[in-house]
């Protein structure tokens, strides 16, 4: 039964997430809160690892969530189901490319979809900040933020710095 539920949940992520990269996160966050297949903490770890392993982040994090929920078969089902809507839609759209590109309703939908997807991700960011960071974490976040404002870096750069600081902070019992 868990496999069927995985299929339904990840198919619906593939069908409704727009904007690539982190666009699937609000959906995975919602699953963590409702299905309890994994915790928010686990999801955060998955995002970190997905950001530094080969492949599109969206595929990585879906595979990871599927694996955490139901092992290798779970990973296979999650990955396939999250791609399936793309596969079907892209092939249909490829056959009617011109109509799709000039359709007024498609443009109107995309025009409104993008800010909605952005709002969903902002809600995840705020929720993570409120629930996951203690005082020392907040200070670390502010420092990282100022580094990012000064100059843009790779995800790997921020994650390496925060990993080292986490390791050091552990010695001084600052992580709880």
């Amino acid at each position: 039964m868990i496999y069927f539920n995985l299929l339904i949940q990840f198919f619906h992520i593939g069908l409704f997430s727009f904007g690539g990269g982190y666009a699937t996160l609000p959906f995975l966050y919602h699953i963590a809160e409702n299905q309890k297949w994994y915790t928010i903490k686990q999801l955060t770890d998955m995002i970190a690892i997905s950001s530094i392993t080969p492949g599109p982040v969206g595929v990585n994090v879906a595979t990871f969530a599927g694996f955490t929920t139901a092992g290798i078969l779970g990973a296979l089902i999650a990955t396939t189901s999250v791609i399936l809507p793309s596969y079907v839609l892209v092939i249909i759209i490829s056959k009617f490319l011109e109509q799709f590109e000039t359709n007024k309703n498609v443009k109107a939908a995309i025009y409104a979809l993008k800010p909605a997807g952005c709002g969903l991700l902002a809600a995840v960011a705020v929720d993570m900040f409120m629930n996951n960071a203690n005082l020392f974490g907040m200070i670390l976040l502010v420092i990282l933020f100022f580094i990012s404002v000064k100059q843009k870096h790779d995800p790997l750069y921020y994650l390496s710095i925060s990993a080292i600081i986490g390791l050091l902070a552990g010695f001084f019992k600052l992580t709880t």
Partner: peptide
């Protein structure tokens, strides 16, 4: 666990930047 605690903070930044 401590490394992942730190990385968890890094992830919050990544989500903010993506937003």
């Amino acid at each position: 666990q401590n490394i992942f605690w730190g990385v968890g903070i890094g992830v919050i930044l990544l989500v903010f930047l993506a937003t």
